[in-house]
Amino acid sequence: MQIIRINKAQATQDGAGVNISRIAGFDGKSLDPFLMIDELKSDNSSDYMAGFPPHPHRGIETFTYIRKGGFEHQDQMGNKKAIRAGDVQWMSTGRGVIHSEMPLSDAEQGMHGFQIWLNMPAKDKMRAPRYQDTTEHKAPVITTNSGAELKALAGSWQLDGQTVQSPLNDLAGNGAIADVTLPADQQITLDMSGYGKVLIYIHSGTLADTRLSATYQLELDPAHPVTLQSGAQGAGLLVLAGQPIGEKIAHMGPFVMNTQEELQQAVRDYHAGKFGSI
Rank of each mutant, 00 (worst) to 15 (best):
R84P: 12
G78W: 13
R95D: 07
G78S: 10
G94T: 05
D75L: 03
D87M: 11
S92F: 10
V97L: 15
R95E: 10
S105K: 09
M91N: 05
G96P: 08
T93C: 06
K80C: 14
G78L: 11
G70Y: 00
I98R: 09
Q74W: 10
M91S: 11
G78K: 12
N79A: 14
G69T: 01
G69H: 01
G86W: 15
H73N: 06
G96I: 08
M77V: 09
V88A: 12
A82N: 13
A85Q: 07
G70L: 03
W90D: 03
I98A: 04
K68E: 02
A85G: 13
K81Q: 12
D75P: 06
S105A: 12
V88P: 07
G69C: 01
M102H: 02
E72P: 09
W90M: 07
G69R: 01
S92T: 13
N79M: 11
W90N: 04
G96Y: 07
G86T: 14
G86H: 11
M102F: 02
R95G: 07
T93A: 13
I83W: 11
L104P: 04
R95Y: 10
D87P: 03
S100V: 04
K80G: 09
M91A: 12
K81T: 15
S105W: 02
R84Y: 08
M77P: 12
R84A: 13
G96V: 07
Q76N: 14
H73K: 02
I83C: 11
L104H: 05
Q74F: 13
T93L: 08
R95Q: 11
R84T: 11
Q74T: 15
R95I: 08
S92L: 10
R84K: 14
S100C: 02
M77T: 09
E72K: 15
D75I: 02
G96A: 06
E101K: 00
Q76S: 13
S100A: 12
K68N: 02
Q76L: 09
G70I: 08
G69S: 01
R84G: 12
H99Y: 02
K68P: 03
V88H: 03
N79Y: 14
M91Q: 12
T93G: 02
S105C: 00
S100N: 09
G86Q: 14
I98L: 13
S100I: 06
R95V: 04
V97F: 09
A85L: 02
H99Q: 04
Q76C: 15
I98C: 05
G94W: 07
